[in-house]
Design a protein around this nucleic acid. Sequence first.
RNA 1: GCCCCCGUAGCUCAGCUGGUUAGAGCUGCAGGCUUUUAACCUGUGAGUCGUCGGUUCGAAUCCGACCGGGGGCACCA
Length: 488
Amino acid sequence: MSEPEAKDLLAERREKLDRLRESGTDPFPHDFPDREEIGAVVEAHGGLGAGEETDQVHTVAGRVVGKRGHGKVVFLDLRDQTGTIQVLAGSDRLPEESFEALDLVDLGDFVGATGRALATKRGELSLEASDWRMLAKSLRPPPDKFHGLEDVETRHRRRELDLIANEATREVFRVRTRTIAEIRRQLDDRGFFEVETPVLQPLYGGALARPFTTHHNALDREFYLRIATELYLKRCVVGGIEKVYEIGKDFRNEGVSPKHNPEFTMLEWYEAYADYEKTAADLEHLVAGVAEAVLGTTVVERDGESIDLAPPWERVTLRDAIFEVTGIDIEKERSLEGLAGAIGVEPEAGIGWGKLVDDLFSKRVEPTFVRPTFVIDYPVELSPFAKDHRSKEGVVERWEAFVAGMEIANSFTELNDPDEQRRRFEQQAAELAGGDEEAQPYDESFVEALEQGMPPTGGVGLGIDRLVMVLSGAPSVREVVLFPAMRD
RNA sequence: GCCCCCGUAGCUCAGCUGGUUAGAGCUGCAGGCUUUUAACCUGUGAGUCGUCGGUUCGAAUCCGACCGGGGGCACCA
């Protein structure tokens, strides 16, 4: 270790940075105007045969993702958001100083280059550089250029590295972005208004879940991070916004799992004069339309199995779904003891009949729905905001949609009878007092809104993260959230 | 919160029935090469083996605790 001291990779890069500065080059210039997108350049010369040359000069910029020295010629692969192109930097076309300075280019640097388009004798479209410049020096080595970055923890904590290294990751988030854009486009085209309702709420509601709490200093009071947008959106409907939606984050203070991130993105929409049959038809068409727009097909692959999202989706009542899988008829077992006996468990203290049905369904039946399926007509106990079924006793007009063994959406004909809503809240408040931490707190201001008069309304909640999981084939919600929740 | 698996160089991995200075490829550095594309060839550098403690003459290797990750259970969308 006498002469050139053993330097680590970081020190090598910093030394190159210094050498750039010493040579009068700014390693971090302020801009690089007039570049063309690489994808467009590639597109323009798609037909070029091996050895063919053009006199068309292009200027591009991007990250150096490949570098191959070959004596008096250096090949750089430059990548921008639209594509990758090879830059051929030869000593015969570049001033000596400029050619030598290529020594200071590392994988990961941002470089701009100008040159005429040609195809090498191997047929690779290239820009034969007549000029190049450093646009931003990278001071840390990129992940392995061949194996990419595979360590799951690093991929999630340092997503920028994952995005640099893995095309599959870039594709997942392209799918996510396009999915949300397409949903917006479809709802906007149908005349829906997109709104924003409070994330910080004095009272949480609209779902059965434990909330995060926080404190407002100036007001000296507690706030809850919303668990759903439901109640505020229905107040919009009361106010005359007949087609309304919101896409935003909800927060639930519960465990993390491959299907659960504590903050997640939810679409909720409400349409006046619609019911849950209308919302079901709308959802299956929305999802199929999004798949068609984003993937070019309604067929997705999962665990080697093809799933077609094209409507119509299957429809089965909750009672039939449970009966078919377990042989237990929840319409016959209406008592807590009877149902517990049929399942073969002891009813836990504080657990209700509805909760037991929910447990039975989610554990044994839900995973069996691989093809898109609507499960309809839920017990009223589980659905404090859904309207009673128009003809069946004890159930409400509600469905949940399942794909690939996961719930992706939930909908009901909205309860708009304020007195019935008040009774449901009282029931929930009793369960909350009885120790059910996921029950609803009583929200008098919401009941007053209903007293103002809400038209018949159908509403839907669609889990965006889960939809993206389905569309991208991702096995975990952490693969479709850029920066998932991790421990410190 | 509980159970199982994992943590070796910047990256991808080997070594782990305890035994000389812990290895390989890529990356880096030096040199060669004017059409390569995981470029190639020669040489060379790089690691508190997650952390702490224990057993032992001797620990990357065995044991324990802790930290972090993955999967499952519980809970939930």
